[in-house]
Amino acid sequence: MTTESGFHDSVYDEDLLGGDASHWAFGTSFEDPLAGVDTTIPDGVDPEELAAYCLMLGDDALIYSHRLSEWCSRAPDLEEDIALANIALDLLGQARLLLARAAAASPAVVPAMPEGSPVPPEDALAFFRPDAQFRSTRLVEPDNGDFAVTIVRLLLFSTWRLALLERLASSRDQVLAAIAAKGVKEVTYHRDYAGRWFLTLAQGTDESRSRLLAALPPVFAFHEELFTDHPVETSVAAAGVGVAPSDVAAEVAVILEQVFSVSGVERHDVPQIGPVAGGTGRDGRHTEALSHLLAEMQSVARAHPLGVW
């Protein structure tokens, strides 16, 4: 913490800080996650649609990252605590790059900040948009539930996202392609982790199996929404920069079938949560859970729009 005359002289003396106060100035100058990256938009691609699409993929990662991070210090044991926090961190990194890409594609999507605010565009998007402007799919919004619900949701989410990212790695947008190629390596670990725990819970005790089975209906109630193409997704897919989720439905089904079958769990159709007022998460129509999550996630940033961290 700085004072007008420089650093405090108490325990934070020069020796501890190495005599160089600017060393602690994270979050200021050279923090642009896309510094030096060529963000030119490919020919024939609408910048607004590209930005909206990046927000969709970025918001999925951001909101789910926040949900998973709620397990920190509360997981069943230390290894799972660390695993879930690591997965959350990977997704947060993906979110940061995707939101930065959205802002670079169309600066108009970034909320206006007060004069002199040091908040970078990706943070403005994360912390200063109201719920209806988020484009995350509703699967990532509800509370974590117990560990079985967490594992079932992670399996569905990571299987879906991995399939999307694998195709996105050949996007005509070089930035999206690079973010996706990197994300593939990370989400592969997330899917394996969820798949192994799914099997363990299914084949574990009567209690773990019954909890796993009970977790299926609430999570799979959002299944249909994952594979329903939003007009923006259809458009960016046609332009060769995005992926239409309906295109990955078959391969996701194959992977899920492998996990269910090895685990000795039958997959039943469950009632789906349909659109609200004609829209779903991609349209900014969300569950109440998202508003509560954002209230917690955004409150500090909103209270200090001029804050330097």
Binding site: F30, D32, P33, G36, V37, A178, I179, K182
Partner: peptide, 10 residues
């Protein structure tokens, strides 16, 4: 000046 290279992935 520090630039970021995202591709190829590390």
């Amino acid at each position: 000046e520090v630039r970021v290279s995202l591709s190829p992935a590390w």
